[in-house]
Design a protein around this nucleic acid. Structure first.
Lengths: 216, 216
DNA sequence: GTCTATAGACAGATAGAC
DNA sequence: GTCTATCTGTCTATAGAC
C-alpha cells in the first residue's frame, strides 16, 4: 500500500520543507479533484500553493510523482477505516459505525474522494501497482468478515463482495456527486446535519436490507 | 432538458453528415469519459473518429459545443428511465424494474455514465443551465412518487430523496468504478452474468431495506 | 465538404543566477 | 532553498487551397 515517491532521500525534513509540501499537496488535491491527472495544471497548483511553479519540481520529481503522493494519502485513509471491521464484531454495530465513518470522510475530505474517483473512472492506470495480488488477497480477507457474519447466522446471506460495493458506492456518492445533490435539493452545500440525515437513512436501509436490527 | 447546439441550422442533414456526427460523438464520449472536459484532446477525438481534426470544427462549433452535445444524449437517456416510475405502480415491482434498467444502462453505456460523473465531480459548471428551477421541480415530482407509496403504507417511511441518491449511486457505481470492481475481483471485464448477480443483490437489499417484499 | 498548414496560447520541465 | 527566464512540445482553433 506504500508507493510514496520522495523527491530527495535521507535527510530529515526541515520545517520549511514540511510546510511547503503540505501546501503543495493541498493545492494539488483541489486541482486533481477538479480536472483529473491529465487536465490538471502544475501552474494552477503552484498558484494555489502560493509558490513559483519551479518549486513544485524541487519538492516533487514531476507531475506524476505529485499525483501519486496525493493518491497515496487518500488510499491509506480509506483502507485503515475498512480494516477496523472484524468477524468478532456485532455486524449491526460495526456496519453502523463503518457507514458513519465513511460518510464523515465524504463530508470532511470530499476532494480526496474525488481524486480517487476520477482516477478510477479514467481507467486507474496510475494504480496498477496498487491493485496487486496482495490487494486482492486483502480485499478477499475483508469480504471474509462479512461471510463469517453470514455463516454465524448473524445476517442474511447477501453477496459480501456486492455489499462492499454498495457500501462504497452509496457513501462516496455524497462526496463525489455533492454538486448534483446540492442542486436538486436547492442547497449551496451539504451541512453536517444534512450528512447526518443521509447517514441515518443509509444505515437504516442497508441494515434492514441485510436482515440486521439497528442498534440503540 | 434540451440544450443541443447544432453547428448549422435549417438544412436537412445529409447521410454523410449523420454518419460523421455519430462517429465524432462516439469518439468524443470515449475521450471525455477518460479525461474529462479539460483533459480531453480534440486531436485524440479526431483520430478516434477517423477524421482530420479540422472536420470536428466543421460539425461542431468548438470543444464545448461537442461536449454539451455528448452530455445531452446521456441525460435524456437517464431522465426517460426515471420518468417511468408512477405513484400507481406497485413499488416492489417498479423499483425492481428501475434498478434493473439502471444496471443495464451501466452495462451497455458505461462511458456515458462516466462522462456525466466526471462533469459532476468537476463541479458541473457545464450543467448550470440544466439544473434549473424546472429540473428541481421535476426532481421533487419524482420524489413525490416515493412519498405517495409511503403515504399509502406500501413501503417504510424512508427519506425519498436519499433513497433516490442510493439508487443512483449504487447502480452508477458499476459503470463508473468498473475498473476497481474488475481489479479486486480478478476479472478483465464485467460480464452480463456478473451484472445480473450484482443487480439481484442490490434489488434484494434495497427492497428489503425499504420494507418491500420481492416480486416473484 | 475535406484537409493541410499554421497561428497563438499554454503545457510540463529545466538551467542557472541568487 | 528560491525564483526568473526559457526550452520544447501540445493544445484549440482557423485560414485558405482543393
Amino acid at each position: 500500500m506504500t508507493f510514496e515517491v520522495p523527491a530527495h532521500d535521507g535527510k530529515p525534513p526541515s520545517r520549511i520543507r514540511q510546510k511547503n509540501e503540505q501546501a503543495i499537496l493541498k493545492a494539488a488535491e483541489d486541482e486533481f479533484a477538479r480536472y483529473g491527472f491529465k487536465g490538471a495544471s502544475m501552474n494552477a497548483i503552484a498558484l494555489g500553493a502560493g509558490l513559483p511553479k519551479a518549486n513544485l519540481h524541487y519538492y516533487f520529481r514531476n507531475k506524476l510523482g505529485l499525483y501519486i503522493a496525493v493518491l497515496s494519502n487518500i488510499i491509506e485513509l480509506w483502507d485503515s477505516t475498512f480494516n477496523a471491521l472484524t468477524a468478532e464484531d456485532d455486524p449491526a454495530q460495526a456496519l453502523t459505525q463503518y457507514i458513519h465513518a465513511k460518510m464523515e470522510f465524504s463530508r470532511r475530505q470530499p476532494q480526496a474522494s474525488r481524486v480517487f474517483a476520477m482516477e478510477i473512472i479514467s481507467g486507474g492506470a496510475c494504480l496498477t501497482e496498487y491493485f496487486t495480488q496482495d490487494y486482492i488477497a486483502w480485499f478477499q480477507g475483508r469480504a471474509a468478515v462479512f461471510q463469517a457474519w453470514i455463516d454465524a447466522g448473524k445476517m442474511d446471506p447477501v453477496d459480501p463482495v456486492h455489499l462492499i460495493f454498495l457500501l462504497w458506492g452509496s457513501t462516496q456518492h455524497y462526496a463525489d456527486f455533492s454538486t448534483q445533490i446540492c442542486r436538486v435539493s436547492g442547497r449551496t452545500h451539504l451541512t453536517k446535519q444534512d450528512m447526518q440525515v443521509a447517514s441515518d437513512n443509509l444505515t437504516r436501509i442497508i441494515l434492514k436490507g441485510c436482515g440486521l436490527t439497528p442498534t440503540a
